[in-house]
Design a protein around this nucleic acid. Structure first.
Lengths: 345, 345
DNA sequence: ATGAAAGCGCTAACAC
DNA sequence: GTGTTAGCGCTTTCAT
């Protein structure tokens, strides 16, 4: 059996309460007693039982995270950053992957809530989020991440995706492109906002908004390269064909580039392509990929901070945090004239 | 406050014990009583408090995983697969990333054990694993993953890395290459075994084992591309220079390819290069990368199964599971004559 | 088939 | 400063 508070108390002839107080750094303990307790704890290599603490105190020092796909570099990067930041506060991360399936997502949320996570961070794939309240009268605070639900007054952290769309499209405009297409996703706030940004930028530049140039398909997240490839092939059939494409994410962009090359055209000379996410290996692709970097590491850090705040003060004021994105131009838009951007820059 | 067993018992005029039995599917409950309990549970949307259950029963239905780097596709893929499989058994995943730092790793292990994980799965970055026992007299069963410690009698799951090395090297030999180099890692069982496999294959083919052709460096995991690039540059200075390289992983391979191209040479004509891991985007790289696929999804599935077994029967016989790797040949070794292998194949 | 009693390891609230 | 009492929500054991 593991060492318990009780063991230390017995050894020292004091009460468990005092030991507990020392454990938690409570100030109302005599210096001598504190020293003796700490010494004994070290000797016995005492490890507190967080289950018991959680049950008694209502705080588990645990954060739950639900993402649609752990392998997606964006979510993996976020999870890593979040986890690293939580470690500094001695909190643990309960992680679940919903596979972009709302039903699985609900199940995972339930699992996490049953474990008493202090906060829930979630990039939800629900179409509507009213279901969130059907999970019992649970008062666990939550933080929406990446995907927002405008009609829901909730804590949110993500990028300003309107800016993402504007930034990408503006970049293509600045390069002199005039027939700019958009390969988008559906049913999520980032998809919707990036599209809006795209339109804003076109309008601001006085370019026409040709609806043929906007194509979308469901489930862009999973096999994005294949989807991107298919959609690009559709776009290439248009006359005149687009001379640039802003893709919803990097994987669709990769597929799109492939389609352009397969059609015997050049990137970026015939069609410039920009993605979003800034994959770790973007610089090593057949055509090094330009992309909007989401600053994912910062996103994870800030999310951890908000999570800790929520854990400590569940009724805090609503937070809505937008991390500014950043343009990383590589060959897929600017061609070979610039020097190669180093990895992850 | 959330609904408790007690509430249901009170509503129905029965004891909490009976309700608890229904909850756990215990058979010694009358059909009528069971039905009433289940009905009421549904009505109130009862969610069991797993902390309380864990404290009382000693089982938390939680598995801990520690990986060196969550963003590394191999570990991300593994975590995803593991998590998906655990979900089927209603278990949760506590995840931690050690950043390839033994000190952080110990801290994370402690954090997980304090939360009472039923099993610990770990790709450890410790040089020696005796420290494992210093974490208290904890009897939590653990499963080593990817990185083995031969002198430690422990459960293990991973690839047979000797076979990985042989398979990769053999592939290069079959292509007629005779001066085959190896860019390796250090201080881990996969690194060591892949090197052994490399040597085995050379010996079996009657090729000389030139020690100049084996280069290693620390911390290949993090910025693998840069490390691979630097090591390849070293190799290219040799006379005669190598005509093929087996790289420890895909990221070093990417860097190595870059170095070859920067030197004005061709891949694979001048230098054939093969990696290990089979990145999701391997097919879309400048030179589509040949690699040994580690069958990571299967690895995660089997790990989950073993974890569940260990959770239920901690004293089970030691398991040592080797998932067979698979060769995926692309342009970086065989050139353009073959058809492109589809993504993730 | 059902339940009473005891307790998992800890903390909160209040005495002294 | 220190200790007492009383739980947190559940399971276990052993009566009946």
């Amino acid at each position: 059996m593991a060492v318990r508070l009780k063991d230390i108390a017995r050894d020292l002839g004091i009460s468990t309460v005092t030991v507990s107080k020392v454990l938690r750094g409570n100030s109302d303990v005599g210096d001598k007693t504190r020293a003796r307790v700490l010494k004994r704890m070290k000797e016995l290599n005492y490890q507190p039982n967080m289950l018991a603490r959680g049950l008694a105190s209502g705080k588990t020092y645990t954060v739950g995270l639900v993402v649609p796909d752990l392998v997606h570099p964006f979510f993996a990067e976020f999870a890593k950053s979040l986890s690293g930041e939580l470690r500094k506060t001695h909190r643990a991360l309960l992680l679940a992957s919903s596979e972009e399936d709302p039903v699985i997502e609900m199940q995972e949320i339930r699992t996490l809530l049953q474990r008493g996570v202090d906060v829930l961070i979630i990039a939800s794939c629900q179409a509507v989020l009213k279901n969130f309240y059907e999970l019992g009268d649970n008062r666990t605070p939550y933080l929406l991440f990446d995907r927002n639900f405008p009609h829901l007054a909730a804590n949110f952290i993500g990028n300003d995706d309107v800016v993402v769309g504007e930034m990408a499209t503006r970049h293509l405009i600045d390069l002199g492109r005039t027939r700019i297409a958009h390969i988008g996703a559906r049913y999520s706030s980032p998809a919707f906002d990036r599209l809006r940004g795209y339109r804003n930028a076109l309008a601001a530049a006085g370019l026409p908004a040709d609806e043929d140039l906007v194509v979308t398909r469901e489930r862009v997240e999973e096999a994005g390269d294949l989807v991107g490839n298919a959609m690009m092939r559709d776009l290439l059939k248009l006359k005149p064909r687009p001379d640039a494409v802003f893709c919803y994410n990097d994987t669709t962009a990769i597929g799109a580039i492939e389609a352009v090359l397969e059609a015997g055209l050049r990137v970026p000379e015939d069609v410039a392509i920009i993605g979003c996410g800034n994959l770790r290996y973007a610089a090593y692709l057949k055509v090094p990929l330009s992309a909007i970097d989401q600053n994912t590491t910062e996103l994870g850090k800030r999310a951890a901070q908000v999570a800790v705040e929520l854990a400590e003060k569940p009724q805090a004021e609503l937070k809505c945090i937008m991390i500014p994105p950043k343009l990383v131009a590589r060959e897929s838009t600017v061609g070979k004239r610039r020097k190669r951007t180093p990895l992850n820059a």
